[in-house]
Design a protein around this nucleic acid. Structure first.
Length: 98
DNA sequence: TATTTGACCAAGA
DNA sequence: ATCTTGGCCAAAT
């Protein structure tokens, strides 16, 4: 199991209608490098399997998405998450921690 | 082996 | 509020 795979495994555990942050995710992986997580996601070899769109920055901003932030925002909204016009979500309400 | 890059973060100016 | 700085970690070059 390498870092990336663990990353995906965790991502798959995020329930619908919830999001997590790169930082929390990193910590759950026993690391302090939030970028390493994003790095793993952006490659994302298993695009359809892993819900990379449920990961946002620690301040609630979406961050980025391999297929475009617009898609990310749409998917999230489709799952019942309110994404503000400026690509932002309510962490208080949707944050999921491991 | 060394450097750069990236879907980041927190603290300071 | 915006910008810079230094720090973080893994993968790619």
């Amino acid at each position: 199991m390498n870092f990336e795979e663990q990353c995906y495994e965790l991502l798959k555990k995020i329930p619908e209608g919830k999001v997590t942050t790169y930082k929390h995710l990193a910590k759950a992986l026993g690391s302090n490098g939030a970028r390493a997580v994003g790095n793993a996601c952006r490659k994302n070899p298993n695009a359809p399997q892993v819900p990379c769109h449920r990961v946002v920055k620690s301040d609630g901003m979406l961050g980025g998405y391999a297929f475009g932030v617009d898609q990310k925002a749409r998917l999230l909204r489709k799952e019942g998450i309110a994404v503000s016009d400026k690509l932002r979500v309510n962490l208080e309400e949707y944050l999921f921690e491991f």
